[in-house]
Design a protein around this nucleic acid. Structure first.
Length: 489
DNA sequence: CTAGGGTTAG
């Protein structure tokens, strides 16, 4: 078009930029942005600018997303929605909410698009703040009639991520226009909250309601079969997937299947070929994965590594890990776990140090990406939960302290799960007072946090204090119970 | 032009 001398207009640019977004090609986006400016649409068209905010949001350039947004003279609702969604993609939850407040201050009416992003931001705050703000979003959505299902689904996910699965459930049952995503959200929320029987029950009800399970459904319900070791149910779902081509080629489904069969001990150990009775005698899980063309998929590779490590074949996990073209945080965590399982704590610790140096290819960059679009990997709470038992097992106090400071640096030391693991580590390294100090700093404790410290005092022969803690634990539990009925309205 | 659901441990 441009070669034949026809100038693109404010209809051509959004269309072509949408293609750029799908391709995740930041450089191409920047080139087209240059053309936008050259052809005079740099500040004359809100639509084009909004599209650019979206391009930079999805291709991972926080700076330019903000720059384009700031340069829009007459921002419309879509401008705000795009900016707030982009901030969510960059996990800038506070900034997203701040943008939302500014939007309201400019008397711009939020839409369901806005609420979906804001609900997502709320679900990533601390529980107390998230619930307080999230309920306001919920209230607003009740007053708004436009496109409700999207908002409801975002709220379902939000409540369960904030640990209020019961709210999600009540909301789901109250709302009548549930779609596939609503059902899938419920099933995955229940699965993620360890309510596996309930997840399977919802799955059954979903099928009864006439919905055809898709890849997300299957990938959400298989972990429930896996944890409950309900092999027959898992096989039924596997059979269903086999009858549906697009399901069995789905990499999430593939990795969930590997995990399920592994967890149900349907693998006869030995060598790279891991046999599984659910397939034919000669077929291994790994072979099956290869047959389905899933062996290069990151999710499947992660599941395979986990499987081999559990079977005492950590060296095969290593081979997979080293051969992977793209590794995400789960790959690293799984490899670390593999080392911890087989007692190679030193290797596990080394991996944590490697992680701080290595950059992985990603399309979700912030400002710190290099020329090849790579960023340093950020550890998450699972990383610390995985490595700390290794320190505890070795009674490696110095290493444990290093990990502790690393956790502080990543703002994860006060997380319940990480905090509990730290308490355990200090206790097992003989530092009961440090364990106590860390315990005191954990703002929201769960039953594991308390158990770990009580056990620590028990092990250190300080029974009186253990009993005292047990009493406090019961008090703390009843104090923190929230009795809020939110869904009667 | 903008939106919701899926993988890792214990």
């Amino acid at each position: 078009m441009t070669l034949s001398g026809i100038a693109p207009d404010n209809f051509a640019f959004p269309a072509v930029l949408k293609a750029v977004t799908s391709l995740q090609d930041l450089n191409l986006g920047k080139q087209i942005h240059a053309h936008v400016v050259k052809f005079g649409y740099g500040s004359s068209s809100v639509t084009v600018a909004n599209t650019l905010v979206n391009v930079y949001g999805k291709c991972g350039d926080k700076g330019d997303a903000c720059k384009v947004f700031d340069g829009i003279i007459e921002r419309d609702q879509v401008s705000w929605n795009s900016m707030i969604a982009a901030l969510c993609r960059f996990e800038e939850w506070e900034l997203a909410l701040e943008a939302f407040r500014s939007m309201l201050l400019e008397n711009m009416e939020p839409s369901s698009f806005t609420l979906v992003s804001v609900a997502l931001a709320c679900s990533n705050l601390l529980k107390r703040d998230g619930l307080r703000l999230g309920k306001q979003v919920h209230a607003y959505s009740v007053r708004m009639s436009e496109c409700k299902t999207f908002t409801i689904n975002a709220l379902l996910a939000m409540y369960s991520k904030l640990g209020e699965a019961e709210y999600s459930r009540a909301l789901f049952e109250l709302y009548e226009d549930c779609d596939m995503v609503s059902w899938n959200t419920m099933i995955s929320s229940l699965s993620q909250n360890d309510q596996f029987m309930e997840a399977l029950e919802f799955f059954r009800l979903m099928v009864l309601a006439g919905f055809k399970p898709d890849g997300v459904t299957v990938a959400s319900v298989l972990p429930a079969c896996s944890h409950l070791e309900m092999l027959d149910t898992g096989k039924e779902i596997h059979a269903y997937a086999l009858r549906t081509n697009e399901l069995i080629e789905n990499s999430y489904v593939g990795s969930a299947l590997v995990d399920m069969y592994c967890n149900c001990r349907q693998v006869s150990s030995g060598r790279p070929s891991v046999r599984c009775e659910a397939f034919s005698d000669k077929e291994s899980i790994h072979g099956y994965v290869i047959k389905r063309g899933l062996e290069k998929n990151r999710y499947v590779q992660n599941a395979l590594m986990d499987m081999y490590s559990r079977m005492g074949q950590t060296q095969i996990s290593e081979t997979i890990f080293n051969s992977m073209e793209v590794r995400d945080i789960v790959s690293w965590n799984t490899m670390i776990t593999g080392y911890v399982i087989c007692g190679r704590h030193g290797d596990a610790l080394n991996l944590i140090y490697d992680m701080q140096r290595v950059k992985e290819k990603t399309n979700m960059n912030d400002n710190a990406y290099d020329d090849e679009g790579r960023v340093p990997l950020k550890p998450n709470s699972i990383t610390f939960m995985t490595i700390l038992p290794g320190c505890a097992a070795l009674a490696a106090l110095a290493k444990g302290k290093e990990i502790h400071s690393y956790a502080i640096k990543h703002l994860l030391a006060f997380d319940v799960a990480v905090g509990s693991a730290l308490v355990d580590m200090y206790a097992k390294c003989g530092c009961i007072d440090l364990a106590r100090a860390v315990f005191n700093q954990i703002p929201i404790k769960n039953v594991i946090t308390w158990n770990v410290l009580i056990m620590a005092y028990g092990m250190h022969g300080r029974g009186e204090e253990a009993l005292e803690l047990f009493k406090n634990m019961v008090d703390d539990g009843s104090r923190n119970k929230e009795h809020v009925a939110i869904l009667g309205w």
